[in-house]
Design a protein around this nucleic acid. Structure first.
Length: 551
RNA sequence: GCCCCCAUCGUCUAGAGGCCCAGGACACCGGCUUUUCAAGCCGAGAACCGGGGUUCGAAUCCCCGUGGGGGCACCA
């Protein structure tokens, strides 16, 4: 490129939420641009009209924003080389196709899918690698028109030069492909839309893309792209193929994993005769026919809501795959990006926790690995824990509000002061969701407290119901507390434990079960302070009243 | 089947010929702390895929093998 301004892009298809793998690709492109004072472009690759999903583009863009990966040019912000949706750039592709056709570098073809399929099978039977057989004499335009008039579907294929090619990759080094290893690929589909390969080449040129950082699964596409760039007289950009990201078990991370986990659980329950096929359908709120097809691996038969219902009933956790999933699970965007940056890249030394600015400063292509990495959720959790504990109160508050709004948590209604206090009380949290898990009951209605059977047995009933005895004493003691503050409450509880000759745990635990229904809550005195005297006493009474049921 | 890429603890990685009988982080195990759950603190174990070279010297360079992965659409 004649200009020395770095321009890199992230080019997702609007087929769903942003995948974490895609997020990493986007992040690396963004970091690279920031590092070099370049421009980060987002382009929507929506040439496959059938696969486009309504609303997906918005979600994709919103997820990027949430991650702090803001485009300099894109559908939202526009820019000098727009439009930034391929569906709006048809004329560019048409012109480029016409040029290639004119110069004999591309040609018409009208084989039916069935014909191609037959040829492929034939090749397979003969243990031969199938490559589209280029006709020795290329069809003319009028022949193509005639075929079209006869109802044939006409495509345009690129005539791949019969010569070896070496692709220079900034990460992998030189990669050479032998002559005749690529077939004449379709560049214009019969519906008039360009294929991915062609649109990418044309757009990267017109958008002045200087660097293509993409996943390694695209490596084999690169020679095709370079051939096309040469044929069109474009200067190829620099390429850098990023190592892939897999699940911890080495399988590909895909949206299907969500179905897979739930399907396995459902099958196990069916096998154990815990569920019947009718149960599955009832729980999912779908037809038996649909659930059976789904159980037989037809992902599309059930939507995510139905699958989620099954997951809840089967008590399995659906793995997070999309950025949005991680958001709902309570991860901080800065933790997610930090973690994901570390798969296939490292800043060197023993550094791991980096601010975005530090990442930008230390980001170089030569520090990107060639080896595929695995997505270790445990490590992500650890990174998130560190981010939560190091976040400033304001940041944590904002992140929690963001999370609460996204999940529809009831804690949304709390005021800033209270929430800040709760967040402080919950320090040590691994995710934002932990906050609700731990402190949510304190803000719920008294009647909604459900007593965990295990906690009741272990804490209230043991030693002949010692726990209940403590609660009765607590009722009196707490009623008499002069001032309802954490300090005074704490003193009252301690004194009670001392005079009764029991440990702090013997008092705090029953009290915790009384107010929270289980053995988990923030520090007891703080919890009571937050709950308020009336509700505390009411909950203790309610717990005592249910004693008979417990026994 | 054909083409291509890759190879350090269970996982992510540091390591660009001697600084490495290999360092960090997560996980795991043991312990401490503790009114719960988390968090925190201390400690232990844990790897250069195999075989040949090159070199005074190789985790680092070369070759072969093995293993893992990716790609072979009118999907992107």
């Amino acid at each position: 490129m004649s200009t020395d301004v770095v321009r890199a892009r992230f080019a997702p298809s609007p087929t769903g939420y942003l995948h974490v793998g895609g997020a990493r690709t986007a992040l690396f492109n963004w970091l690279f641009c920031r590092k070099h004072g370049g421009r980060f472009i987002v382009r929507i690759e929506d040439t496959d009209i059938l696969r486009n999903i309504e609303g997906a583009e918005r979600k994709l863009l919103d997820d990027l924003t949430w991650l702090g990966i803001e485009p300099d040019e894109g559908p939202d912000q526009g820019g000098p080389f727009g439009p930034y949706r391929q569906s709006e750039r048809r004329d560019l592709y048409d012109a480029a196709v016409a040029k290639l056709l004119d110069e004999g570098k591309a040609y018409y073809a009208w084989d039916t899918p069935e014909e191609l399929d037959t040829l492929r099978k034939q090749a397979q039977a003969e243990k031969r690698t199938f490559r589209y057989p280029r006709p020795s004499v290329l069809p003319t335009k009028s022949e193509a028109d005639r075929a079209r008039a006869e109802g044939r579907s006409v495509v345009v294929r690129f005539r791949v030069p019969d010569e070896p090619i070496t692709v220079q990759d900034e990460i992998l080094g030189d990669v050479t492909f032998g002559a005749g290893e690529m077939e004449d690929l379709v560049i214009l589909k019969s519906n008039g839309w360009p294929t991915y390969h062609f649109a990418v080449v044309v757009d990267d040129h017109h958008m002045r893309i200087t660097h293509v950082l993409r996943a390694q699964e695209h490596l084999m596409n690169t020679p095709k792209h370079v051939f096309m760039q040469r044929a069109l007289g474009y200067e190829p950009p620099k390429f850098a193929h990023l190592p892939l990201v897999f699940n911890i078990d080495g399988t590909k991370m895909s949206k299907r994993d969500k179905h897979k986990v739930v399907r396995k659980a459902a099958r196990d329950l069916l096998k154990a005769k815990t569920w019947t096929p009718d149960d599955v359908a009832r729980i999912a709120q779908a037809t038996v026919k649909a659930t059976e097809a789904w159980l037989d691996k037809a992902d599309t038969e059930l939507d995510m809501e139905q699958v989620t219902r099954l997951a809840v009933a089967a008590n399995v956790v659906i793995p997070e795959i999309d950025v949005h999933d991680f958001k709902l699970s309570g991860y901080l965007p800065e933790a997610l990006t930090n973690f994901v940056a570390l798969i296939g890249w490292s800043p060197g030394g023993d550094r791991e926790m980096l601010t975005r600015q530090e990442m930008v400063e230390s980001f170089t292509l030569d520090r990107i690995n060639k080896t595929a990495g695995r997505f270790d959720r445990e490590k992500l959790l650890a990174v998130n824990t560190v981010y939560c504990s190091e976040a400033k109160p304001e940041r944590l508050l904002a992140a929690f509000r963001d999370w609460a709004a996204a999940t529809g948590s009831a804690m949304q209604s709390l005021d800033d002061a209270t929430l800040t206090r709760v967040l402080e009380l919950c320090k040590g949290m691994r995710t934002l969701a932990d906050v609700e898990y731990k402190a949510g009951v304190l803000f719920a209605a008294d009647e909604s407290v459900v007593y965990d059977a295990d906690a009741v047995t272990k804490i209230l009933l043991k030693k002949d119901g010692q726990g209940y005895g403590v609660l009765e004493k607590l009722l009196t003691a707490l009623s008499a507390v002069s001032e309802w503050s954490e300090q005074v409450i704490n003193t009252a509880i301690k004194m009670l434990a001392e005079s009764a000759g029991v440990s702090m745990g013997d008092v705090a635990q029953p009290l915790r079960v009384a107010i929270a229904g289980r053995a988990v809550s923030p520090a007891i005195a703080e919890s009571l302070a937050l709950l308020g005297r009336d509700k505390t006493l009411a909950r203790i009474k309610r717990c005592l009243a249910q004693r008979t049921q417990h026994v």
